[in-house]
Structure formats: C-alpha cells, structure tokens
Design a protein around this nucleic acid. Structure first.
Lengths: 382, 382
DNA sequence: ATATTAAGTCCATAAAGTGGATTAAATCGG
DNA sequence: CCGATTTAATCCACTTTATGGACTTAATAT
C-alpha cells in the first residue's frame, strides 16, 4: 500500500532522490541535479547544503567542462562519516565488514570458528565481540556505524531464523541474543545484493550461490525478489529428475543431489573443493566428468528457472565461481539446447568476482542503500 | 528510480491513497480515512469532496454504528461515471467487457471467430468494431471509458506482440492497427490479475492457466511479477524429465508434453476437453489415468516453481478448472511428497471460479486499478 | 574589454497539509 | 426530557516546502 505524503515526508523523499542521483551520476553539479530530478535549483541547493553539513556529500572541486558559462562545483558522496556494518555467520567462519557511504570497504574482519560445534548463544556472543571491535575501530576513523545486517545460511522470516540446517539452528531469534540492533537475512539473498552493488552484475540477474546447499537470489530492476514468505530462490531443490536420488528435503532428484558440494565431491571421490580444483587443473578425467555432469544438471534447473522467472543474466557464485572454467560449457549447452526455441537469446552466463565475500558486503550494502534512499534519519540524528 | 515529489504530485499521490483506502475499506467515514491514511480530517474532507465531484465516490448515507457521538457519513466508490474496457483476442473468439470503478461488470460482448484463419489486420478491425460498440453503449449508460487493455495469447513487450503461435502472429504492433489507444499484455498475466481482482484469491498466488499451452502468472503482494523482459511464468516449459519427449520449444520433457491439452487428449485417445470430461464422469480408466499422470507432472513442475518463486497459494485455471476434481489429488500428492521437508506448509491448491473470463476482466481491472492509484488524471479531464 | 552563457543564491509567492476551534448530530445518564 | 459527553465534519489561521524570477558570480567567445 502506498503511504500518504506530507510536507515532512515530501522533504524526506526528495532528499533521498537527490542523494540517490548524486550516487548514480558520480560528480554532478547542483544545476545538473535540478535538471535530473525535476526540482528547482533552489530546492536542490538547499538539500545539497544539508547533506554536506551531515557529512554525506562533499564538494569535489569545480567541474570545468570546456563549455562556456560559469562552471559548476560538483558534489559526490562522501565516505567520511556514515558507515554500515555487514556480518556473516557461516559453517566454519564468522566475518564482519564496515562499508562507508560510497560503498568502499573500510574494515574487514574474519574469524575461523567451527559454528556447528557451538550453540547459537556462543556463536552470537563471538559475533557480538567481532562487531563491537569493528564499530570501535570505525569510530576511531571517524565513521559512525548507522546500522548492521547479518547474513545466515538459512531461511529467515522477520528476524527469526527458522532453520539453518548446516549450523544446527532452529527457531533462533537473533535480536534476543545480541546487545545491538541488527537485521537478519538469508545468505543467498544478501550475496545476490552484494553482487548487485559490489560486483559487475547489471540490475537484472539470478545469482547462484553454491555453498553446501545451492541457493539463488533473483534481482529484477535492482530489487531482490523474495516471494510471498521470503523463501524464494531455493534453486537447490528444483527437480532435475523426478525419480532421481532421495534428497534431505524429502524430495527426489533435486539439483542439490547432482550439483551440490557433497554430491560433486562424492562423484569424483575427493574430500574438498581445493582437492577438486587441483584434480581439474591436472586434467583428471574423473573430476572433469563429475563437473560436466553437475553442470548439465545445473543447466536443466536453470532452464526451469529462466522459464519461470525470466532473469536478465545468470551469475555463478560461491563454489561455482572457482569451478567456472569447467562447468561453464556444460551449463551453457544444457540451457542453449533447451531455450533457443522459445527466446531469441539465452541469458549470459557469468562468474561472480566476489565469491564468499558477497554476503557480508551485501549485508552492509543493504544498510547503505536504505540510508541513501532515506537520508533524513541521519540528518535528524545530528 | 523514485521520483521527486512536488506539491502537485503530492496531491496526486494523496488523492490516490485516499481513493485506494475507500476501495479497501468499503463504506468509510472521512474521519476513519483520516485515521487510516495519517492525513488530517481537513485534507481528507477536501479530497473526498473533489472525488465526489468527479463522480468517482458517492456518499452512502449515515453510518450508525451504535457508538455514541455524531455518526459519520460513509463514502464508497461510485460506479456511475468512470469505466474501463477489457479486450481479448484468442484462437476462436473475441471478447470485450466494460467494468466500472467498483469493478462491477457492466457490459460483456463475445464473438466466435476463427482467428487462425484471419490476418492480424482483419482480426484487429473486427476487434475495433466490438470495442466501439462497447464504448458507445457504455456512454449511453453514462459511463466514460477511461482506457483499455487487450489480452493476447503470447508474450508481449511494450505493445509489440512478438509471437502468438496459436494465432499465427509475428511482430504485430497492435497500436498501429487500431484507431483507439490500447495497452497490450499477455493473456496469462492478465488472467492472474483477473483472478486477483475478480476471483477469490488472496494477494499472493500463482495462477496456472492451462489453455493450448500452459502459462502461469505470479502475484506477490498484489503485484504481478513479470521478470526482466516480461517473459516470466512459462510454466509449460519447466523441465519435468530431462530426457523426456521433444517439445515444440526445442527442449525435452517440458511440462507441456505431459499436461498440455494436446498431450492429455493424446494419452487417452480423445479429441476434445468436453469428451474428456464426459469420460471422466463415466469413470473410464484410460481418462482417469491420463489425468493422474498429467497431475503428477504438474505437481513436479509446481514443486520447482514453489522452491523458486515461493507463491502463497496455487490457483488452477483455464482447462485445469473443469478438470480440478480429477487432477487435484495427484497434483497435491506430488507436491506434498516433495515439499514437506523444506517448508512447514504446502501451498493450498484451489480452483479458479472465472475460467476463461479471467483475462478480459483482468485487462479492464488493470485500467481501473491504475485510475484508483492515480485519480488525478480523471479529475483534470473534467 | 565587452557580450554571452551557465551556476548558484536570494526572496517573495504559491501550493498543500496541519492543528486547533467551531459547529453538528448522535448516545448516555439522571 | 434535558444537559453532558462524544465523535464527525468543517472552518480558518498557520507552517512547511517547493517554485520561479531576479540577481550575483565566474567562466568562455568575440
């Protein structure tokens, strides 16, 4: 439902529009912003002044473009003051990063811990420690951390982690166990947003994050698609073969049974992804064939996903990123053979540059993007 | 990208918010609207006055609710003046309907024509005739038709019908061949919206429209999901069996090859849906088994769709509506067996009450809903 | 050196919503 | 049955925010 607009919310929204255009259009003059937004120069000037005062925007010198007439002074986002904290809990590590308003990564922490062996309380208290360290260090650099988001490997509904099978979590309400406010979201969702904001993906893509399970995040028009209950994107359980091997989800022939990390390693008799990469580089036939098969299955599942969700491009991330060289062709062939009749073009198949960093970056980016869309909260805080 | 708000657009938006709440909350008093929207009574009163003057809202008498204090006078949407035209071209008929602002169907026209035998120009000139008749008759009843939408059986991108295989259309730009402005959209999309606004579906569902092909429209939070190029929802080509029979799309084992109208009839050796229904009612084993198999395949495809798109409920429409009695159980069983491990609940499986009327109703409803969201265009026209 | 052009600021004005006061029309209690 | 209370709707002076034209500033062109 659309909300009513009042004078204060009009101003709040317009501040967000101006700040958003400053972000999109790099160094811009106030006059250009007025043109872009449709607001008057007066209004834009006043807003830019407020944003500068709040430390969110800075003047970046005169913009001499060779045209005649008085040159404008361009403004850009400033990373000096406002920042956000991105957190991730995964099976064998914790990580945190601090990102400023320009989306520059300012701090990065990582800690190897086996979280399967620990209780949610233990894990979260370790995480809190990491988070406090990050916030303190950020403050020493003059950054004010305006919010934080936590990525967890499992479906999340309104701050409640329903199940994170690989962590052994059930019904964990994270906010009850942390001493600072945090938003919680699914790792695959945040990884897709990370790819959107920090990677090279355009505004429409399906990001496949193959970790232990296989998740996917669909971004359409720069917005994450979440479905009715926030459970969309479970690519790992798309049916590849209705009579295939039983899956831990209760179904049969799910993609995870063909292209999941465990299935992949089992198929070539290896114990870890590093070993698999080594075998692939050595050209061992068993490893190559296992990848070929996994790629074909992934191509079949992606075909269904493309018909249903119509993504712009496909970005392979997580463990599929290092394996890209070897799975690209089988995936592409399986898709091309099935899709060309219905669509003029088969979606591009690309690889994520971010790998496992995508989720915490997306987590921090989510806060930053919310601030840029609605900077009034920061203005009022001062 | 969010647009800047100015005084005029603030008013335009708030008018839409007020009108939307009048629609949602049935007969409401001005005071209640002020509470709901967060605007003041003064503002709401002024807007309701304007909307009444434009004939979009009417007072519906005093609302005596037994509470003490002065009773309010309730207002409701008025269907007196504003209306929209919904049009449909399908393989063997043309249809048109006029719907007023309250979503009451005021006029309905239908014409049996074999559109496969006709050129797009012929078909569209017949359609124009039907449309003009509808608009004239509506005017005689005091209705002003504010816009129209046309449903076609095939993917549409910005007014261009790329291919409508069952009509034999290729690259038809409809607006060039009609003498009145019309929006064009895919039939499955509009059928889903018809189900949303005229049927009994809640705001989150996947509407499956099985006609010659099998399409689907996903509605999330009352909004249709279209994907990156408007091609989302091609349920008929979700892969059920990667090595199954070849499909006209170039793939193998698509759902259409198991549950499409042609496959279904071929499996039991019958020539039409009426005959199939008769056989089913007579309990003939061949027909029952064909339905059982089609239902299982549909259940497998829906399982993939649910994992990927997380719909609230599933609504079966088109030819699946009359077959519902016989396919419900196999579909449900196939879904339940595969889904229960991952989700607490399997989406409800319901049947559409609208059948083939869904698309033209959705077409007209789309115009009405746009007017309700942005009534300023109508106010200015007077 | 002067004309022209464009950027940014100033200021009076307009548009729209706010909030408290007022009037209207009910119910409640004695 | 009448006054007190309560809620609806309207009225009006005021606030917030954006507008638009005038003005100032700083560059290029002639």
């Amino acid at each position: 439902m659309t909300q009513a607009v009042r004078h204060d919310s009009m101003r709040a929204r317009n501040l967000g529009v101006v700040l958003g255009e400053i972000r999109r259009n790099g160094p811009v003059t106030r006059a250009a912003l007025a043109e872009i937004t449709g607001l008057t120069k007066t209004t834009v000037s006043k807003m830019v002044g407020d944003l500068i005062e709040a430390g969110m925007v800075a003047e970046s010198g005169a913009l001499r473009d060779g045209e005649r007439g008085r040159p404008g002074t361009a403004v850009v986002l400033s990373g000096r003051r406002v920042a956000a904290l991105g957190l991730e809990i995964n099976v064998d590590y914790l990580s945190a990063c601090v990102v400023d308003l320009t989306l520059a990564v300012r701090l990065r922490y990582s800690q190897a811990v086996d979280n399967r062996a620990a209780s949610p309380v233990e894990t979260l208290s370790r995480l809190a420690e990491l988070a406090h360290r990050a916030v303190d260090e950020a403050r020493r650099e003059g950054l004010a951390v305006a919010g934080s988001t936590l990525a967890v490997p499992g479906p999340v509904d309104g701050g409640l982690v329903h199940t994170a099978p690989n962590l052994g979590w059930h019904h964990v309400r994270v906010s009850d166990l942390l001493d600072f406010p945090v938003e919680v979201d699914n790792e695959a969702n945040l990884a897709a947003l990370g790819e959107l904001w920090f990677g090279s993906a355009p505004g429409d893509f399906l990001h496949v994050s193959g970790e232990i399970g296989i998740g996917a995040g669909l971004v359409v028009g720069g917005t994450l698609f979440r479905g009715a209950h926030g459970l969309a994107g479970e690519l790992g359980h798309v049916v590849v073969h209705p009579d295939g091997p039983a899956c831990r989800c209760g179904g049969r022939g799910c993609l995870e049974q063909y292209a999941g990390q465990e299935a992949l390693l089992r198929a070539c008799g290896l114990t870890g992804i590093p070993e698999l990469l080594e075998s692939l580089r050595a050209g061992e036939p068993g490893a190559l064939e296992a990848c070929e098969r996994a790629g074909q299955a992934l191509g079949v599942a992606l075909t269904s996903a493309i018909h249903l969700m119509d993504p712009g491009t496909i970005v392979l991330g997580g463990v599929f990123a290092p394996l890209f060289r070897w799975i690209r062709d089988p995936v592409h062939q399986a898709m091309a053979a099935r899709l060309t009749g219905m669509r003029h073009t088969v979606p591009d198949l690309t690889v994520s540059r971010l790998g496992s960093d995508a989720a915490p970056l997306g987590a921090a980016g989510q806060i930053i993007h919310r601030i840029i869309a609605n900077p009034i909260a920061i203005l009022l805080r001062r």
